[in-house]
Amino acid sequence: MAKRAQNFKKLGDRVVLYADNYINDIEGEKLEEVCDGLLKNGIKRIVMDFSNTEMINTVGVSILIGIMEKVREKEGILLFSGLKKVNHEICNIVGLAKHVPIFRTEKEALEGFPA
């Protein structure tokens, strides 16, 4: 059974990280810390789900880039899911969409990892 602890859910070697609305505040740094902890524990397949994120602002973009860099350093895979249209556009504007594959739903993202 999938385990959701605070803002992430572990599914075998994959983890879904829930951005919620923390991402728009400096407190969102904690998501980076959670991600750090997961990578240290050998998790390399991470989905960030934005279903509950109304709008990603510049602070959010900065945090997402930080997470992306950390996953890259560990040669992991980061996928995004559940982005609202406005947030999808922001990912396009700042170039995140070129570096991180974006899926419509969390389920699709989990299925989107290479075998």
Partner: peptide
């Protein structure tokens, strides 16, 4: 700083 970095998508 985060806002400036986010605006220009700098890491």
């Amino acid at each position: 700083l985060y806002m400036v970095m986010g605006t220009f998508a700098s890491s």
